[in-house]
């Protein structure tokens, strides 16, 4: 860490002491309250997903298809709520409750793309769609290939 030898006068606190002081005077995240809201909002989003699965199943879709279709619909919902500027307001309270569900994945896709529209449709929207989705796909798909490879060698 780049602390210089400063000509006096300068503050009578060492970098180490300062970091301790800064830690002490910086407010901590309100973990219990954050977790409560993450649980409530995240749970509600998933419950809504289950209601949609049930409806698709009642309409005659198989269990797997109903689940896949519900996921796609939730992505649409997350994208729309981001477009009309509601999702970030939910996120203020819900934290991970609105990040972890697939609606949060949709939010992470739309929010940068939306803002970079003024930079054009290719290098603005097109490129920025994947600011967060890119890493998710990279790590997700890579892991799946590793899993497939291990499974292939195993059998």
């Amino acid at each position: 860490m780049p602390n210089q030898n400063l000509r006096p006068p300068t503050i009578a606190v060492t970098p180490k002491d300062y970091q301790d002081l800064a830690k002490k005077l910086t407010p901590k995240p309100t973990i219990v309250r954050n977790s409560f809201w993450a649980f409530m909002v995240g749970g509600t989003i998933c419950a809504l997903g289950q209601v949609i699965i049930n409806l698709f199943a009642a309409a005659g879709l198989g269990r797997q298809e109903a689940s896949t279709a519900a996921t796609a619909l939730m992505i649409l919902l997350g994208a729309l709520l981001t477009g009309i500027g509601v999702y970030d307001e939910i996120g203020k309270y819900a934290g991970a409750g609105s990040i972890v569900p697939v609606t949060g994945f949709a939010n992470s896709i739309v929010s940068p793309a939306l803002e970079f529209k003024r930079e054009g449709y290719v290098l603005g929207v097109g490129a920025r769609l994947f600011t967060v989705a890119g890493p998710v796909l990279v790590f997700g798909i890579t892991t799946s290939i590793v899993v497939g490879m291990v499974y292939y060698l195993w059998h």
Partner: peptide
């Protein structure tokens, strides 16, 4: 779903 989100938080 709620528990998984708390883990994320």
């Amino acid at each position: 779903g709620g528990v998984l989100c708390v883990l994320g938080q």
